[in-house]
């Protein structure tokens, strides 16, 4: 495989990681626990499209738009029905994490009961041939993935910086109590964050499904890569998340360029451990507060 081919592959992988990671990081920043069920929202995005397009016969583009909306709604439902209640009870981050694991398990099994465990596709009728650029084969979907991801990263960055709701999201992330004191309704802001983060996860799931099909367990791996990207880049910084995703994608594909592809996940894990050990705040993150005594 040529170096440019490797670069294209790592870029498109990084683009997906970045979307999952961005949604995950947005949510983590406001609620401070690991939202495992983010993985099932990712899976949900893909299966909503399958449901709409293949089972109900809607056109692909329409299905994708509706599926993104449904992913956002799914994330919000999880937040309202479970996390919000736990938060109001003052639950610890471990309790919230365990609850999110439970949510993940339930929803993944519902997906596999409804749609079956076999691989499903929404690619039928799409142009599969790649375009040749300097001896490198680039598929249209790879280009789409990179373009969509890049534009979403930039718009999220601008959104958080310049819109009112974006600013209140950052305020809640920085200091929930202070934000509450200055009149921001944290529950509403958190809900908006879940909507945005879940839509991003849904989009990522759809893009992956367009690239390599779908199965009910697709979300777990995607989630892990997203989490690794967040930890590498540093929680709480969009450029950091993008950088983390890029580094992870590069490391994996450059590694695979030399050694065989079965070690891709192992590379991710080793990188994660190195960061947790030596720089748990990531590249661009702020230092994690030490335990207060």
């Amino acid at each position: 495989m040529s170096l440019t081919q490797t670069l294209v592959n790592s870029l498109s992988a990084a683009a997906v990681y970045a979307l999952v990671a961005l949604g995950f990081a947005l949510i983590y920043n406001t609620v401070r626990f690991f939202h495992f069920a983010h993985g099932i929202v990712f899976t949900g995005g893909a299966y909503f499209v399958f449901l709409l397009k293949v089972w109900l016969g809607f056109p692909l583009f329409f299905s994708i738009i509706v599926a993104i909306g449904l992913s956002a709604i799914l994330g919000c439902l999880i937040e309202i029905s479970i996390y919000r209640r736990l938060r109001h009870k003052g639950a610890s981050s471990l309790i919230l994490l365990l609850a999110s694991l439970g949510v993940y398990v339930v929803l993944q099994n519902i997906v596999s009961m409804v749609f079956g465990d076999d691989i499903k596709t929404i690619r039928s009728g799409m142009v599969e041939e790649g375009i040749n650029i300097l001896g490198t084969k680039v598929t249209p979907i790879q280009i789409a993935i990179i373009a969509v991801s890049l534009s979403l990263l930039v718009s999220c960055f601008l959104f958080l910086k310049y819109t009112k709701i974006g600013q209140s999201m950052r305020a809640v992330a920085n200091d929930p109590e202070l934000a509450c004191a200055s009149g921001i309704e944290s529950d509403r802001v958190i809900l908006a964050t879940f909507a945005l983060g879940s839509a991003l996860a849904g989009i990522a799931g759809i893009l992956v499904a367009l690239d390599v099909d779908m199965s009910p367990t697709m979300g777990m791996n995607a989630l892990m890569m997203g989490v690794v990207a967040v930890i590498i880049g540093g929680v709480g910084s969009i450029p950091g998340v993008a950088l983390g995703a890029l580094l992870l994608g590069m490391a994996q594909h450059l590694g695979v360029w030399k050694i065989s592809s079965q070690w891709q996940d192992a590379i991710a894990f080793v990188i994660l451990l190195i960061f947790l050990l030596f720089r748990p705040q990531g590249f661009l993150g702020r230092k994690i507060k030490k335990v207060t005594i």
Partner: peptide
Amino acid sequence: IAANMRQIIYGALLVILMLFRP
């Protein structure tokens, strides 16, 4: 279906316990 149901039941139990009896 029983295999899926088992997972749904323990997943749901996990959520319910976290809510009411961690």
